[in-house]
Design a protein around this nucleic acid. Structure first.
Length: 311
DNA sequence: AGCGAGCCCTGCGCGC
DNA sequence: TGCGCGCAGGGCTCGC
């Protein structure tokens, strides 16, 4: 369950259960689900057994479980990226295996006793890893869920997300206008701003009335301020709704769907009237994906100008 | 530097 | 009812 709100729903669901829990067992059913792990299956399993989880942390779409320090070992975390179709589900230890179960960890949780965390992933684009924790460059907490200024090595290049208190709006604006690219491409660049994927990019651009290919270089400060506000607004609302689920694929740790799909204004709404002006929403192919937008209220050129699209 | 293409994959829903 | 095709919430690497 890919974008920030969906991953945050998972993190928040895991947090009270995994914090302080001991890892009692690890079973890797699908080795390809360890693509991000620097080591083999046996290494992954043996290094986790007996360790205790300290927190559940998220930055952008990355999620990690820092382990309590062990004497003589550098700090590490279990890193998770859900890719396009990954899920982390809480299960009874006796529960039958989920159909697309790839990795399973059993825990002894102070709050919930014995249970299992199931990593289920249809497409195997997601993956788990043991990753060393490094100091953050800015000294601020690595992500949501842990005050420690530590971040997994594989997340070090990922920008902070717009719901992170340490996200710097002005720094983002300067980096954005320094880019010679289109706005949607920039929003999907996780090294510039993280947590945004195809759904929330389209939704925020619709809300801010910006065409997806609008050049970033000429964006004015008020436009960027507005865009950031709309991004935060849509991410927060989606989070409050439990995320966006189109099918059983995107669920929280208990297997329940989110309801934000009912509030989408542009994404997946091609042919339906724009909620603002009534013009049918258009879908265009873009970056091997789809872009959904209103051709009237999201023009490349600034509105209220006499000329047509400004290339 | 930016960008498209290719790659990693499975499964679902649709049209024929 | 069956089959092929297009589609899917991501990210990384490699060339031009």
């Amino acid at each position: 369950m890919p974008e920030l709100p969906e991953v945050e729903v998972v993190r928040a669901g895991l947090e009270p259960v995994v914090t302080g829990a001991a890892i009692t067992g690890v079973e890797v059913i699908e080795p390809r689900s360890l693509r991000r792990h620097d080591g083999d299956v046996a290494d992954f399993e043996s290094r986790l057994i007996g360790r205790r989880i300290r927190a559940a942390v998220r930055r952008g779409k990355f999620l990690w479980l820092p382990l309590e320090p062990q004497h003589g070992l550098p700090p590490v975390a279990v890193l998770a990226h859900l890719g396009m179709s990954g899920q982390l589900l809480l299960r009874d230890q006796e529960a039958p295996a989920d159909r697309l179960l790839r990795v399973r960890m059993t825990l002894d949780s102070p709050a919930h006793g014995a249970l299992a965390v199931a990593f289920v992933d249809q497409r195997i684009f997601g993956s788990l890893a043991i990753d060393p924790l490094l100091p953050t460059r800015d000294g601020a907490p690595g992500g949501r869920g842990d005050p420690a200024p530590l971040v997994p090595a594989q997340v070090a290049h990922i920008a902070r997300d717009p719901l992170d208190p340490a996200f710097e709006d002005e720094r983002f604006r300067r980096a954005l206008i320094a880019k010679r690219t289109g706005i949607k491409r920039a929003l999907l660049d996780q090294t510039l701003i993280s947590g945004i994927g195809n759904i929330y990019a389209d939704e925020a651009l619709w809300a801010a009335q910006l065409h997806y290919d609008r050049p970033t270089a000429r964006l004015t400060k008020p436009v960027v301020v507005r865009l950031l506000a709309e991004l935060r607004h849509v991410l927060e609302r989606a989070l409050a709704d439990g995320g966006t689920s189109f099918d059983a694929q995107y669920v929280n740790v208990n297997g329940a769907s989110g309801y934000f799909s009912q509030r989408l204004n542009a994404y997946g709404r091609q042919g339906e009237p724009c909620p603002r002006c009534g013009t049918p929403i258009v879908r265009e192919s873009f970056m091997n994906r789809s872009s959904h937008f209103c051709p009237v209220c999201q023009r490349r050129a600034r509105r209220a100008r006499s000329a047509g699209p400004a290339a």
